[in-house]
Design a protein around this nucleic acid. Sequence first.
RNA 1: GCCCCGGUAGCUCAGUCGGAUAGAGCAGCCGCCUCCUAAGCGGCAGGUCGGAGGUUCAAAUCCUCUCUGGGGCGCCA
Length: 599
Amino acid sequence: MKQPLKQHLTQLLAQAVGELCRRGVLPQGAAQSIHLERTRDPKHGDFASNVALVLAQLSGCPPREIAAQLLAELPTSELLAKIEIAGPGFLNFFVTGAAYRALIDDIRGAAEQYGRSRIGAGKKAMVEFVSANPTGPLHVGHGRGAAYGDAVARLLTAVGYQTCREYYVNDAGRQMDILAVSVWLRYLECCASDVAAAAFAFPANGYQGDYIRDLAAQLHKKHGAAFQVDATAFFTPRAENPTENLAAEAIDDEARMDALIARCKECLGARAYRTMFAYGCDTLTKNIKQDLEQFGVCFDNWFSERSLLDKDAIARAIAALQKKGHIYQRDGVKWFKARDFGDEKDRAVVRANGSHTYFASDIAYHFTKKERGFDKIVNVFGADHHGYAHRIMSACKALGYARDQLRIVLVQFVALYRGGKKIAMSTRGGEFTTLRELREEVGNDVARFFYVSHKHEQHIDFDLDLAKAQSADNPVYYIQYAHARIYSVFGKLAKGEMPTLESVAPQYEQLGEPQELELMKTLSRFPEVVAQAANELQPHLLAYYLRALAHDFHTYYNAHPFLAEQAELRRARLGLIDAVRQVLANGLGMLGVDAPPNM
RNA sequence: GCCCCGGUAGCUCAGUCGGAUAGAGCAGCCGCCUCCUAAGCGGCAGGUCGGAGGUUCAAAUCCUCUCUGGGGCGCCA
């Protein structure tokens, strides 16, 4: 039985429906209504289909009558003990114990391949995630995106896709200029030019975090006074341009920041500014990379926004849109006809002064994604980017993406609580909890499992005190414990006088206890869960599944001894729990969580 | 003002393109280690699925309205 149970039964049902269609009992297209699902109540068998109820409406026949005709047409299968018509017209399928028992050796034979499939075989997928601006350390919100995106990538790999993890580095644009200026101002403080500090308060909309001071200190240590300027002259407004009054409180904060950036470039010269800019950007990018690697998240590609210019991608992307007639000019500005693709308004791509907008970079970026030949593209965005999702989607439609080629997933916020109080999160304000701190407090596995066990569209509240206090009760330990317990049993076996499992092939006929059947049933669901989680980009389904599997195992553990006196029974039980061990390991692996042999 | 996501047990959350009696963990109560790891197991209790209409054989699930919490709306990034 190499084919998953559910798939097999669905095919049988499809044959029966097809036959009734041919005979004209059912309308054409009835096959679309075939659904088979796992039952909740064992009285209803293992699988149930409501197909007769749905077809009753289409054909005008009473549902139980349709069910009876389908039953008559269903091909026999040695995997089925019986099929019943129940309630208003459900078809209930009862799977034989033998079918489940055969699964054990299938799993043990397939080993780490069990649960994987070839749904995406021969296709390339890209998951773009995190993509935080390199303007500071990653915080707990980014951690969620990282854990989620990585799990999605692992799931897509599991169902056969050749998967690429990509991080889009926003290393161009105003935010990075603000970073550069922030570093530079702190650097001036390091130069002990007390005048600078005295003459000028650090701007409120600059990056406030202590890490900026660290960066500045390193920069000073490395380059000495290379970037020093006469602070008094720098901050003194020049008569010919009063808006340059950098210290004035009268002008708007953002305007002041722009002036500050301009003056900084001017005073340092393009080359020195570039060096300093790159220093901040590169260092922070490196830190982010390191953080993610320590979290177990490794990207295949770090895609630089600036590289779009080198590749001439922006010009090419705009030209491509222009050629298709999706660009028009008004007031000297080039607009993309986003409204033609479902957005609420048209969007500017090139300003009157010739500079391109941020959106133009994004179009170009998605132009390259298409160019690179990905069949399935997943963008994982923070919920705060939801306004952008429409725009990107409309641009991709215009660029000729196939329907459903791009999936944009919005991951909701993580609200952090400590001592019952919400912790504010602001990178510029410098007040936030970093991913690193979280990892150090609760550990990678707890953090990853917590993140990934929530639906992405659910806001989550993370109480740090609670997480620490309850870390021993964390569900991830419950699952890992089941895995470790199995190792422990085999360890015991190796030390004892009983023959090891490998010496004789197990026969599973004796496995008939309720806990054993339940466990086998749960094991059989694994490939379905993986496929669904991958298709729907919902790793939390797998997290819940693993919890259920661990529970079935612990129940079994408490009910029956595995190292039974009777050799035949012992081998069978050990075979079963070996299959459980395999599935736990495979599943945890797909979530990026360790499966330790002992705890 | 418009758009997105939530509101399910005291708390944190699941709930299969509508399906049979709405589930789990934590917290609470009662039991279980001469036996493979008690980070475990069994049991009890806990619900007008935010509210009101509607669609139908069937609604936590779909539609409309409404209350409520979070987020977003630029030639910023």
